[in-house]
Design a protein around this nucleic acid. Sequence first.
DNA 1: TATATTTATTGATTTATAGTCATTTAATAT
DNA 2: ATATTAAATGACTATAAATCAATAAATATA
Lengths: 214, 214
Amino acid sequence: MGIEERKERERERRRQQIMVAAKRVFSEKGFSKTTMEDISREAELSTGTLYLYFKNKEELFASLSFRILQYLLIRLEHVTKETDKGPVEKIAALKDAMYDVYEFDPLIIINMFHLQSSETLMNLSPQILSDMKEMSKKAMREMAKIFQEGIAEGIFIEKHPHALTDIVWSMFSGLVLWEESKRIINPNKDFLKPTLDIAFDILIRGIKRSEEPS
Amino acid sequence: MGIEERKERERERRRQQIMVAAKRVFSEKGFSKTTMEDISREAELSTGTLYLYFKNKEELFASLSFRILQYLLIRLEHVTKETDKGPVEKIAALKDAMYDVYEFDPLIIINMFHLQSSETLMNLSPQILSDMKEMSKKAMREMAKIFQEGIAEGIFIEKHPHALTDIVWSMFSGLVLWEESKRIINPNKDFLKPTLDIAFDILIRGIKRSEEPS
DNA sequence: TATATTTATTGATTTATAGTCATTTAATAT
DNA sequence: ATATTAAATGACTATAAATCAATAAATATA
Protein backbone atom coordinates (compact mmCIF):
# COMPACT_ATOMS: atom_id res chain seq x y z
CA MET A 1 0.00 0.00 0.00
CA GLY A 2 2.95 2.33 -0.65
CA ILE A 3 1.28 3.94 -3.64
CA GLU A 4 -1.44 5.61 -1.65
CA GLU A 5 1.17 7.11 0.65
CA ARG A 6 3.30 8.38 -2.20
CA LYS A 7 0.21 9.91 -3.80
CA GLU A 8 -0.61 11.63 -0.55
CA ARG A 9 2.94 12.99 -0.43
CA GLU A 10 2.72 14.17 -4.03
CA ARG A 11 -0.58 15.82 -3.31
CA GLU A 12 0.94 17.66 -0.37
CA ARG A 13 3.92 18.64 -2.57
CA ARG A 14 1.68 20.15 -5.20
CA ARG A 15 -0.23 22.01 -2.52
CA GLN A 16 3.02 23.45 -1.27
CA GLN A 17 4.11 24.28 -4.82
CA ILE A 18 0.94 26.30 -5.28
CA MET A 19 1.41 28.01 -1.93
CA VAL A 20 4.99 28.97 -2.76
CA ALA A 21 3.89 30.49 -6.05
CA ALA A 22 0.94 32.20 -4.40
CA LYS A 23 3.13 33.68 -1.70
CA ARG A 24 5.45 35.18 -4.30
CA VAL A 25 2.65 36.79 -6.25
CA PHE A 26 0.62 37.95 -3.25
CA SER A 27 3.71 39.47 -1.64
CA GLU A 28 4.44 41.38 -4.78
CA LYS A 29 0.97 42.52 -5.85
CA GLY A 30 -1.19 42.27 -2.76
CA PHE A 31 -4.40 40.27 -2.48
CA SER A 32 -6.87 42.00 -4.76
CA LYS A 33 -4.50 42.72 -7.63
CA THR A 34 -3.33 39.14 -7.77
CA THR A 35 -5.27 36.97 -10.20
CA MET A 36 -5.59 33.23 -10.03
CA GLU A 37 -4.03 33.18 -13.48
CA ASP A 38 -0.97 35.00 -12.13
CA ILE A 39 -0.59 32.30 -9.53
CA SER A 40 -1.17 29.44 -11.93
CA ARG A 41 1.43 30.90 -14.30
CA GLU A 42 3.93 31.26 -11.48
CA ALA A 43 3.22 27.69 -10.36
CA GLU A 44 3.33 26.41 -13.94
CA LEU A 45 -0.08 24.86 -13.59
CA SER A 46 -3.51 25.61 -15.04
CA THR A 47 -6.09 27.66 -13.18
CA GLY A 48 -8.33 24.65 -12.85
CA THR A 49 -5.68 22.80 -10.90
CA LEU A 50 -5.54 25.50 -8.26
CA TYR A 51 -9.19 24.86 -7.54
CA LEU A 52 -8.50 21.16 -7.00
CA TYR A 53 -6.32 22.11 -4.05
CA PHE A 54 -8.01 25.26 -2.77
CA LYS A 55 -11.70 26.06 -2.72
CA ASN A 56 -11.16 29.67 -3.79
CA LYS A 57 -8.73 32.56 -3.80
CA GLU A 58 -9.50 33.48 -0.21
CA GLU A 59 -8.83 29.97 0.98
CA LEU A 60 -5.49 29.89 -0.80
CA PHE A 61 -4.58 33.12 0.89
CA ALA A 62 -5.84 31.89 4.24
CA SER A 63 -3.56 28.87 3.97
CA LEU A 64 -0.60 31.23 3.76
CA SER A 65 -1.83 33.13 6.80
CA PHE A 66 -2.22 29.82 8.56
CA ARG A 67 1.45 29.00 8.01
CA ILE A 68 2.47 32.33 9.45
CA LEU A 69 0.25 31.80 12.48
CA GLN A 70 1.87 28.39 12.92
CA TYR A 71 5.25 30.06 12.95
CA LEU A 72 4.03 32.68 15.43
CA LEU A 73 2.69 29.97 17.71
CA ILE A 74 6.09 28.27 17.81
CA ARG A 75 7.71 31.57 18.73
CA LEU A 76 5.11 32.18 21.45
CA GLU A 77 5.56 28.72 22.92
CA HIS A 78 9.26 29.40 23.07
CA VAL A 79 8.62 32.64 24.97
CA THR A 80 6.30 31.12 27.58
CA LYS A 81 8.73 28.26 28.18
CA GLU A 82 11.64 30.50 29.12
CA THR A 83 11.63 29.91 32.86
CA ASP A 84 14.46 32.34 33.52
CA LYS A 85 12.38 35.30 32.37
CA GLY A 86 9.79 37.11 34.48
CA PRO A 87 6.37 38.12 33.09
CA VAL A 88 7.52 41.61 32.17
CA GLU A 89 10.46 40.29 30.19
CA LYS A 90 8.20 37.74 28.55
CA ILE A 91 5.91 40.49 27.32
CA ALA A 92 8.91 42.20 25.77
CA ALA A 93 9.82 38.90 24.12
CA LEU A 94 6.24 38.59 22.91
CA LYS A 95 6.52 41.96 21.22
CA ASP A 96 9.74 40.90 19.52
CA ALA A 97 8.16 37.67 18.34
CA MET A 98 5.25 39.58 16.83
CA TYR A 99 7.49 42.07 15.16
CA ASP A 100 9.76 39.36 13.74
CA VAL A 101 6.78 37.58 12.26
CA TYR A 102 5.67 40.85 10.72
CA GLU A 103 9.09 41.51 9.25
CA PHE A 104 9.25 38.03 7.77
CA ASP A 105 6.64 39.06 5.22
CA PRO A 106 4.90 42.38 5.89
CA LEU A 107 2.54 42.24 2.95
CA ILE A 108 1.16 38.84 3.83
CA ILE A 109 0.64 39.99 7.41
CA ILE A 110 -1.03 43.21 6.38
CA ASN A 111 -3.35 41.41 4.03
CA MET A 112 -4.01 38.76 6.65
CA PHE A 113 -5.32 41.41 9.01
CA HIS A 114 -7.41 42.93 6.27
CA LEU A 115 -8.95 39.62 5.38
CA GLN A 116 -9.62 38.84 9.03
CA SER A 117 -13.23 39.78 8.50
CA SER A 118 -16.51 37.97 8.50
CA GLU A 119 -17.01 38.66 4.81
CA THR A 120 -13.86 36.74 4.01
CA LEU A 121 -13.91 34.15 6.75
CA MET A 122 -17.36 33.03 5.73
CA ASN A 123 -16.01 32.08 2.31
CA LEU A 124 -13.63 29.53 3.79
CA SER A 125 -14.34 25.82 3.95
CA PRO A 126 -15.35 24.56 7.41
CA GLN A 127 -12.10 22.57 7.60
CA ILE A 128 -9.77 25.53 7.06
CA LEU A 129 -11.94 27.76 9.23
CA SER A 130 -11.78 25.32 12.11
CA ASP A 131 -8.01 24.92 11.64
CA MET A 132 -7.56 28.69 11.79
CA LYS A 133 -9.83 28.90 14.80
CA GLU A 134 -7.81 26.19 16.57
CA MET A 135 -4.51 27.84 15.71
CA SER A 136 -5.49 31.27 16.92
CA LYS A 137 -7.01 29.79 20.06
CA LYS A 138 -3.69 28.14 20.81
CA ALA A 139 -1.75 31.33 20.15
CA MET A 140 -4.10 33.31 22.36
CA ARG A 141 -3.89 30.72 25.12
CA GLU A 142 -0.12 30.88 24.97
CA MET A 143 -0.12 34.66 25.34
CA ALA A 144 -2.68 34.48 28.14
CA LYS A 145 -0.26 32.28 30.10
CA ILE A 146 2.10 35.20 30.48
CA PHE A 147 -0.60 37.39 31.94
CA GLN A 148 -1.84 34.61 34.21
CA GLU A 149 1.68 34.15 35.51
CA GLY A 150 2.09 37.86 36.16
CA ILE A 151 -1.21 38.02 38.01
CA ALA A 152 -0.43 34.91 40.03
CA GLU A 153 2.92 36.39 41.04
CA GLY A 154 1.18 39.57 42.11
CA ILE A 155 3.12 41.62 39.57
CA PHE A 156 0.15 42.45 37.36
CA ILE A 157 -3.21 43.89 38.31
CA GLU A 158 -6.18 41.55 38.20
CA LYS A 159 -7.80 41.71 34.78
CA HIS A 160 -9.10 38.82 32.68
CA PRO A 161 -6.00 37.36 30.99
CA HIS A 162 -8.04 36.69 27.84
CA ALA A 163 -9.10 40.30 27.65
CA LEU A 164 -5.47 41.35 28.02
CA THR A 165 -4.52 38.98 25.23
CA ASP A 166 -7.20 40.41 22.98
CA ILE A 167 -5.91 43.88 23.73
CA VAL A 168 -2.30 43.02 22.89
CA TRP A 169 -3.28 41.30 19.70
CA SER A 170 -5.60 44.12 18.65
CA MET A 171 -3.00 46.72 19.44
CA PHE A 172 -0.49 44.92 17.28
CA SER A 173 -2.77 44.35 14.32
CA GLY A 174 -4.24 47.82 14.63
CA LEU A 175 -0.82 49.44 14.60
CA VAL A 176 0.35 47.37 11.65
CA LEU A 177 -2.68 48.42 9.62
CA TRP A 178 -2.62 52.03 10.71
CA GLU A 179 1.06 52.52 10.05
CA GLU A 180 0.60 50.91 6.67
CA SER A 181 -2.18 53.26 5.71
CA LYS A 182 -0.16 56.23 6.92
CA ARG A 183 2.61 55.13 4.60
CA ILE A 184 0.42 55.91 1.59
CA ILE A 185 0.56 59.56 2.52
CA ASN A 186 4.17 59.46 3.70
CA PRO A 187 5.73 56.53 1.88
CA ASN A 188 9.20 56.92 3.34
CA LYS A 189 8.22 57.10 6.98
CA ASP A 190 7.82 53.89 8.92
CA PHE A 191 7.11 54.33 12.60
CA LEU A 192 5.85 50.85 13.33
CA LYS A 193 8.80 49.73 15.44
CA PRO A 194 9.11 52.81 17.68
CA THR A 195 5.34 53.16 18.11
CA LEU A 196 5.05 49.50 18.98
CA ASP A 197 7.78 50.00 21.59
CA ILE A 198 5.91 52.88 23.17
CA ALA A 199 2.64 50.93 23.08
CA PHE A 200 4.19 48.03 24.93
CA ASP A 201 5.88 50.34 27.44
CA ILE A 202 2.51 51.81 28.25
CA LEU A 203 0.86 48.43 28.38
CA ILE A 204 3.41 47.11 30.85
CA ARG A 205 3.16 50.22 33.01
CA GLY A 206 -0.61 49.91 32.80
CA ILE A 207 -0.87 46.33 34.01
CA LYS A 208 1.88 46.47 36.61
CA ARG A 209 0.77 46.70 40.18
CA SER A 210 2.16 49.83 41.72
CA GLU A 211 5.06 48.74 43.91
CA GLU A 212 4.20 48.88 47.53
CA PRO A 213 6.58 48.72 50.47
CA SER A 214 6.75 45.16 51.79
CA MET B 1 -27.34 83.50 -11.83
CA GLY B 2 -29.69 81.47 -9.62
CA ILE B 3 -29.82 78.53 -11.98
CA GLU B 4 -26.22 77.51 -11.47
CA GLU B 5 -26.75 77.58 -7.75
CA ARG B 6 -29.88 75.48 -7.90
CA LYS B 7 -28.12 73.02 -10.17
CA GLU B 8 -25.29 72.77 -7.70
CA ARG B 9 -27.81 72.10 -4.92
CA GLU B 10 -29.54 69.47 -7.03
CA ARG B 11 -26.23 67.84 -7.78
CA GLU B 12 -25.43 67.69 -4.08
CA ARG B 13 -28.90 66.29 -3.41
CA ARG B 14 -28.41 63.49 -5.90
CA ARG B 15 -25.03 62.75 -4.41
CA GLN B 16 -26.64 62.43 -0.99
CA GLN B 17 -29.43 60.30 -2.44
CA ILE B 18 -26.85 57.89 -3.78
CA MET B 19 -24.98 57.87 -0.49
CA VAL B 20 -28.15 57.14 1.49
CA ALA B 21 -28.94 54.21 -0.79
CA ALA B 22 -25.35 53.02 -0.67
CA LYS B 23 -25.28 53.17 3.11
CA ARG B 24 -28.39 51.03 3.33
CA VAL B 25 -27.04 48.37 1.02
CA PHE B 26 -23.48 48.36 2.38
CA SER B 27 -24.75 48.12 5.96
CA GLU B 28 -26.86 45.17 5.05
CA LYS B 29 -24.55 43.20 2.75
CA GLY B 30 -21.06 44.48 3.47
CA PHE B 31 -18.67 45.94 0.94
CA SER B 32 -17.75 43.07 -1.34
CA LYS B 33 -21.19 41.50 -1.59
CA THR B 34 -22.79 44.79 -2.53
CA THR B 35 -23.00 45.40 -6.27
CA MET B 36 -23.29 48.76 -7.95
CA GLU B 37 -26.53 47.50 -9.41
CA ASP B 38 -27.87 46.88 -5.90
CA ILE B 39 -27.11 50.47 -5.04
CA SER B 40 -28.54 51.89 -8.24
CA ARG B 41 -31.73 49.91 -7.73
CA GLU B 42 -32.02 51.17 -4.15
CA ALA B 43 -31.38 54.74 -5.33
CA GLU B 44 -33.80 54.34 -8.25
CA LEU B 45 -31.11 55.42 -10.71
CA SER B 46 -29.14 53.67 -13.41
CA THR B 47 -25.65 52.30 -12.78
CA GLY B 48 -24.17 54.82 -15.16
CA THR B 49 -25.45 57.67 -13.02
CA LEU B 50 -23.57 56.43 -9.98
CA TYR B 51 -20.36 56.84 -11.93
CA LEU B 52 -21.22 60.44 -12.73
CA TYR B 53 -21.05 61.16 -9.00
CA PHE B 54 -18.44 58.68 -7.78
CA LYS B 55 -15.35 57.47 -9.58
CA ASN B 56 -15.79 53.89 -8.45
CA LYS B 57 -17.26 51.64 -5.79
CA GLU B 58 -14.40 52.29 -3.38
CA GLU B 59 -14.81 56.02 -3.67
CA LEU B 60 -18.52 55.78 -2.99
CA PHE B 61 -17.74 53.77 0.09
CA ALA B 62 -14.96 56.14 1.12
CA SER B 63 -17.43 59.02 1.00
CA LEU B 64 -19.54 57.24 3.60
CA SER B 65 -16.46 56.72 5.76
CA PHE B 66 -15.66 60.37 5.32
CA ARG B 67 -19.04 61.39 6.72
CA ILE B 68 -18.49 59.20 9.76
CA LEU B 69 -15.04 60.69 10.31
CA GLN B 70 -16.62 64.15 10.07
CA TYR B 71 -19.07 63.17 12.77
CA LEU B 72 -16.24 61.73 14.89
CA LEU B 73 -14.27 64.94 14.50
CA ILE B 74 -17.20 66.98 15.82
CA ARG B 75 -17.45 64.71 18.82
CA LEU B 76 -13.70 64.97 19.43
CA GLU B 77 -13.74 68.75 19.21
CA HIS B 78 -16.52 68.75 21.75
CA VAL B 79 -14.41 66.61 24.09
CA THR B 80 -11.28 68.74 23.89
CA LYS B 81 -13.30 71.91 24.47
CA GLU B 82 -14.77 70.78 27.77
CA THR B 83 -12.67 72.90 30.09
CA ASP B 84 -14.20 71.48 33.24
CA LYS B 85 -12.73 68.05 32.53
CA GLY B 86 -9.18 66.95 33.27
CA PRO B 87 -7.08 64.96 30.75
CA VAL B 88 -8.00 61.63 32.31
CA GLU B 89 -11.70 62.39 32.09
CA LYS B 90 -11.22 63.58 28.55
CA ILE B 91 -9.69 60.28 27.56
CA ALA B 92 -12.72 58.52 28.98
CA ALA B 93 -14.91 60.86 26.94
CA LEU B 94 -12.78 60.07 23.89
CA LYS B 95 -13.48 56.40 24.36
CA ASP B 96 -17.21 57.07 24.60
CA ALA B 97 -17.12 59.20 21.45
CA MET B 98 -15.36 56.42 19.54
CA TYR B 99 -17.75 53.82 20.79
CA ASP B 100 -20.79 55.93 19.95
CA VAL B 101 -19.53 56.41 16.43
CA TYR B 102 -19.03 52.68 16.15
CA GLU B 103 -22.53 51.96 17.42
CA PHE B 104 -24.01 54.44 14.97
CA ASP B 105 -23.26 52.01 12.15
CA PRO B 106 -20.97 49.11 13.08
CA LEU B 107 -20.82 47.59 9.62
CA ILE B 108 -19.71 50.79 7.94
CA ILE B 109 -17.03 51.28 10.59
CA ILE B 110 -15.79 47.72 10.29
CA ASN B 111 -15.60 47.97 6.54
CA MET B 112 -13.94 51.36 6.81
CA PHE B 113 -11.14 49.83 8.82
CA HIS B 114 -10.82 47.01 6.34
CA LEU B 115 -10.64 49.36 3.42
CA GLN B 116 -8.10 51.51 5.22
CA SER B 117 -5.40 49.85 3.14
CA SER B 118 -3.06 50.98 0.45
CA GLU B 119 -4.67 48.70 -2.09
CA THR B 120 -7.94 50.53 -1.66
CA LEU B 121 -6.73 54.02 -0.90
CA MET B 122 -4.74 54.08 -4.10
CA ASN B 123 -7.96 53.65 -6.07
CA LEU B 124 -9.39 56.90 -4.74
CA SER B 125 -9.29 60.14 -6.64
CA PRO B 126 -6.67 62.64 -5.41
CA GLN B 127 -9.47 64.96 -4.22
CA ILE B 128 -11.16 62.45 -1.96
CA LEU B 129 -7.84 61.08 -0.79
CA SER B 130 -6.65 64.50 0.24
CA ASP B 131 -10.00 65.21 1.96
CA MET B 132 -9.70 62.00 3.92
CA LYS B 133 -6.11 62.78 4.77
CA GLU B 134 -7.09 66.25 6.00
CA MET B 135 -9.98 64.89 8.03
CA SER B 136 -7.96 62.21 9.78
CA LYS B 137 -5.15 64.69 10.42
CA LYS B 138 -7.64 66.97 12.14
CA ALA B 139 -9.09 64.14 14.19
CA MET B 140 -5.62 63.00 15.21
CA ARG B 141 -4.58 66.53 16.12
CA GLU B 142 -7.67 66.88 18.27
CA MET B 143 -6.88 63.69 20.15
CA ALA B 144 -3.24 64.68 20.54
CA LYS B 145 -4.38 67.85 22.32
CA ILE B 146 -5.61 65.79 25.23
CA PHE B 147 -2.26 64.08 25.62
CA GLN B 148 -0.37 67.34 25.26
CA GLU B 149 -2.52 68.85 28.00
CA GLY B 150 -1.91 65.90 30.27
CA ILE B 151 1.82 66.06 29.72
CA ALA B 152 1.89 69.85 30.22
CA GLU B 153 0.02 69.46 33.48
CA GLY B 154 2.52 66.84 34.59
CA ILE B 155 -0.19 64.20 34.88
CA PHE B 156 1.03 62.06 31.99
CA ILE B 157 4.50 60.70 31.31
CA GLU B 158 6.45 62.29 28.51
CA LYS B 159 5.79 60.42 25.28
CA HIS B 160 5.20 61.88 21.84
CA PRO B 161 1.50 62.90 21.81
CA HIS B 162 1.23 61.80 18.19
CA ALA B 163 2.52 58.36 19.00
CA LEU B 164 -0.02 58.13 21.82
CA THR B 165 -2.75 59.16 19.41
CA ASP B 166 -1.69 56.50 16.93
CA ILE B 167 -1.77 53.95 19.71
CA VAL B 168 -5.27 54.90 20.85
CA TRP B 169 -6.60 54.88 17.33
CA SER B 170 -4.92 51.57 16.49
CA MET B 171 -6.15 50.00 19.68
CA PHE B 172 -9.70 51.03 18.88
CA SER B 173 -9.67 49.91 15.26
CA GLY B 174 -7.79 46.74 16.14
CA LEU B 175 -10.31 45.81 18.80
CA VAL B 176 -13.27 46.53 16.55
CA LEU B 177 -11.86 44.26 13.84
CA TRP B 178 -10.72 41.55 16.21
CA GLU B 179 -13.99 41.39 18.10
CA GLU B 180 -15.82 41.26 14.81
CA SER B 181 -13.80 38.33 13.55
CA LYS B 182 -14.29 36.53 16.87
CA ARG B 183 -18.01 36.90 16.39
CA ILE B 184 -17.89 34.58 13.38
CA ILE B 185 -16.90 31.77 15.70
CA ASN B 186 -19.12 32.90 18.56
CA PRO B 187 -21.88 34.94 16.94
CA ASN B 188 -23.77 35.73 20.12
CA LYS B 189 -20.84 37.02 22.16
CA ASP B 190 -19.86 40.65 21.86
CA PHE B 191 -17.09 41.76 24.15
CA LEU B 192 -16.17 44.99 22.41
CA LYS B 193 -17.48 47.33 25.10
CA PRO B 194 -15.98 45.62 28.16
CA THR B 195 -12.66 44.94 26.43
CA LEU B 196 -12.47 48.53 25.25
CA ASP B 197 -13.07 49.63 28.84
CA ILE B 198 -10.22 47.48 30.09
CA ALA B 199 -7.95 48.69 27.29
CA PHE B 200 -8.56 52.31 28.22
CA ASP B 201 -8.11 51.60 31.93
CA ILE B 202 -4.71 50.13 31.17
CA LEU B 203 -3.84 52.94 28.81
CA ILE B 204 -4.63 55.58 31.42
CA ARG B 205 -2.72 53.73 34.12
CA GLY B 206 0.14 53.33 31.66
CA ILE B 207 0.50 56.99 30.79
CA LYS B 208 -0.20 58.43 34.22
CA ARG B 209 2.77 59.63 36.13
CA SER B 210 3.00 57.72 39.41
CA GLU B 211 1.76 60.07 42.09
CA GLU B 212 4.56 61.48 44.13
CA PRO B 213 4.30 63.25 47.47
CA SER B 214 4.37 66.98 46.94
C1' DT C 1 1.93 -6.92 -22.57
C1' DA C 2 -2.55 -5.07 -23.81
C1' DT C 3 -6.72 -3.14 -22.01
C1' DA C 4 -9.77 -1.16 -18.52
C1' DT C 5 -10.32 1.85 -14.72
C1' DT C 6 -9.24 5.41 -11.83
C1' DT C 7 -7.13 9.81 -10.86
C1' DA C 8 -5.09 14.25 -12.05
C1' DT C 9 -4.81 18.05 -15.15
C1' DT C 10 -6.24 21.11 -18.51
C1' DG C 11 -8.04 25.40 -20.57
C1' DA C 12 -12.08 26.82 -22.94
C1' DT C 13 -16.34 28.29 -21.16
C1' DT C 14 -19.64 30.26 -17.93
C1' DT C 15 -20.86 33.65 -14.62
C1' DA C 16 -20.63 37.83 -12.22
C1' DT C 17 -19.82 42.48 -11.80
C1' DA C 18 -17.14 46.79 -12.25
C1' DG C 19 -16.86 50.39 -15.23
C1' DT C 20 -17.76 52.75 -20.11
C1' DC C 21 -20.00 55.12 -23.74
C1' DA C 22 -23.15 56.11 -27.55
C1' DT C 23 -27.79 57.46 -27.33
C1' DT C 24 -31.81 59.57 -25.33
C1' DT C 25 -34.18 62.80 -22.49
C1' DA C 26 -34.67 67.06 -20.11
C1' DA C 27 -33.45 71.69 -19.10
C1' DT C 28 -31.95 76.13 -20.48
C1' DA C 29 -30.55 79.73 -23.74
C1' DT C 30 -31.19 82.08 -28.06
C1' DA D 1 -39.74 77.49 -32.03
C1' DT D 2 -35.14 75.91 -32.27
C1' DA D 3 -30.42 75.20 -30.78
C1' DT D 4 -27.35 74.16 -27.19
C1' DT D 5 -25.92 72.23 -23.08
C1' DA D 6 -26.30 69.02 -19.22
C1' DA D 7 -27.99 64.82 -17.00
C1' DA D 8 -29.37 60.20 -17.17
C1' DT D 9 -29.77 55.84 -19.26
C1' DG D 10 -28.81 50.93 -19.97
C1' DA D 11 -26.77 48.06 -23.31
C1' DC D 12 -22.19 46.91 -23.78
C1' DT D 13 -17.13 45.82 -22.76
C1' DA D 14 -13.53 44.07 -19.94
C1' DT D 15 -11.75 41.42 -16.40
C1' DA D 16 -11.30 37.79 -13.39
C1' DA D 17 -13.26 34.10 -10.47
C1' DA D 18 -14.93 29.64 -10.73
C1' DT D 19 -16.64 25.48 -13.41
C1' DC D 20 -16.60 21.37 -16.11
C1' DA D 21 -16.35 18.42 -20.15
C1' DA D 22 -12.46 16.61 -22.43
C1' DT D 23 -7.82 14.75 -22.18
C1' DA D 24 -3.72 12.77 -20.33
C1' DA D 25 -1.32 10.07 -17.02
C1' DA D 26 -1.02 6.57 -13.68
C1' DT D 27 -2.43 2.27 -11.89
C1' DA D 28 -4.95 -2.10 -11.74
C1' DT D 29 -6.53 -6.18 -14.06
C1' DA D 30 -6.56 -10.03 -17.32
